[in-house]
Amino acid sequence: MSSSDIFIGETIGTAILILLGGGVVAAVTLKASKARNAGWLAITLGWGFAVMTAVYVAGPLSGAHLNPAVTVGLAIKDGDWSNVPVYFAGELLGAMIGATLVWLAYYGQFQAHLTDREIVGGPDAEDSKAKAVEAQEKGAGPVLGVFSTGPEIRQTVQNLATEIIGTFVLVIAVLTQGLNDEGNGLGILGGLIVALVVVSIGLSLGGPTGYAINPARDLGPRIVHALLPLPNKGGSDWGYAWIPIAGPLIGGAIAAGVYNVAFA
């Protein structure tokens, strides 16, 4: 694989991942969406199908890492770090593009949601207003969850541990699926299996933090949220942002270490 193939594949694949994954969160969350309140199962299935689609698209070009934690895990497993910066760049750029496309696809819903008094906390909705003020003090805006993750209970050690554990499961599953015949990524069956693993992680471990399990998936859209001209969008919660970066990278590294000891 050339560096240009890797960069293009990771950019396109991660953009599709975030477009479909962030899109299902927007569909379930935003006012005036036909899928509003469809629930956590819809979100976990949507993210699983997003992973599957992105793997099939990006696989022929880059091997479809789509996730810096996967890139780090494979680099530790193989001892080859030469293309890691290229993977990271494509993944982050793709995540930002995907988040921007979600905003465009749901533009009207974002506007309706963020101008609704009950959601942003108008004078006739004191309880909602108090919740909105509390969220603002924590730095999380009322639509930040469409773009990035956040904990239900803010406990740094628990939040970090949850991301480490979830990412460990993801990366060990990727590593044990093996590489395709070209040696550059998951095959067709591997892509399906990993997508189902992502659904399982979401259902079993996603409740505490929203299961980022991917630094680019969280950081890229969080940057886009900070830059977008959305009304009443609130903060981007930068105080929490290091956890969905550090946790997945640690989890991916641990998974690679376990793989090298137990499976290699």
Results as ranks from 00 to 15, higher is better:
M1V: 13
S4W: 14
F7T: 06
E10K: 11
T11K: 09
I12W: 07
I12H: 08
A15K: 10
L17G: 11
I18A: 08
L20N: 09
G21Q: 10
G22K: 12
V25D: 09
V28K: 00
K31L: 05
K31I: 03
A32Y: 04
A35G: 15
R36E: 03
R36I: 01
G39I: 04
I43Q: 13
W47V: 09
G48T: 08
G48L: 01
F49H: 03
V51R: 11
A54T: 03
V55S: 00
V55R: 02
Y56G: 00
G59Q: 12
G63C: 02
A69T: 09
T71W: 02
T71I: 04
V72I: 08
A75C: 02
D78A: 09
G79A: 00
D80S: 00
W81Y: 05
W81S: 01
S82Y: 03
N83W: 00
V84S: 09
P85Q: 00
Y87D: 10
Y87I: 04
Y87C: 05
L92P: 11
L93I: 12
G94I: 03
I97C: 05
G98V: 00
A99F: 03
F110I: 04
H113Y: 06
T115S: 04
D124F: 05
K131V: 12
K131T: 13
A132P: 10
Q136T: 11
E137Q: 14
K138V: 00
G141R: 09
V143Y: 06
G145R: 08
G145D: 11
G145E: 11
I153G: 00
I153R: 15
Q158P: 00
T167N: 10
T167C: 02
F168C: 02
V169Y: 14
V171Y: 02
I172T: 09
A173M: 10
L175S: 11
L175F: 06
Q177Y: 02
L179W: 13
L179K: 15
D181I: 03
E182P: 00
G185N: 09
G191E: 10
G191T: 10
V194W: 08
I201T: 14
G202M: 05
L203I: 10
L205M: 15
L205E: 11
G207S: 12
P221I: 01
V224H: 04
L227E: 01
L230V: 01
L230A: 07
P231F: 03
P231T: 06
K233F: 01
K233Q: 07
G235T: 06
W238N: 01
W238E: 01
A246L: 10
I250G: 13
I250V: 12
G251W: 08
I254V: 13
A255K: 13
A256Q: 06
G257C: 02
N260E: 07
V261A: 12
